[in-house]
Amino acid sequence: MELYILLIFMIFAALVAIEVKDLLSSVIAMGAVGFSLCLAFLILKAPDLAITQLVVEILCLIILIRATTRKDIPLVVEGRWVFNTVSTAVFMAVFLFFAFHALKELPFFGQPLMSVVKKYLEEGMSKTGAVNLVAAVILDFRAYDTLGEVAVLFTSVVGIMAVLRRPGRNNLKEKNHER
């Protein structure tokens, strides 16, 4: 029951984040979506995900608020709204049609098939020695995925450093001064 209230609140907050004119209010509505997602993880009994979601959401909010305050970034809302609305409606209809037929094949919510998971739940602690099964899965059974995740984060940091690095901007300043 609480989960459905949270989901409805998240949809409402996401709509507010899209529709509101002020950019800072939009960022705060995004934060509402993130924090209710954290609560939803807690209700679904996934404290690892809840902690990570909470902490990452705080960092994202700090960066976004610092980026949006003190600047007047105009929000473009004009344009071909008829074409946009019609294409969005068509895409949503196609997506809902295929999702309806695809999701019927999935097991019910909270009742997984337990074909792979069973082995992890039974042998996880004796094989890895970790009490927290989430850590056992992401750092032992599925550690290769975690290596890919680390590579993705490393690439993003390298990209941001390459775009925003200081020496390049200093050289640009000196060139501008020489002219």
């Binding site: 960092l59 700090i62 960066i63 610092r66 980026a67 890895t128 020695g129 970790a130 009490v131 850590a135 056992a136 750092l139 032992d140 550690a143 975690t146 680390v150 984060l153 490393f154 993003s156 940091v157 941001i160 450093m161 925003l164 690095r165």
Partner: peptide, 26 residues
Amino acid sequence: AGTIPLSNLSIGLKVGVGLFAIFLAL
């Protein structure tokens, strides 16, 4: 738990310093 604490330590170092570097750059 063998290598799992070592992996946690390295991922923590990497993620923490990486996100702080992004914040510093911004």
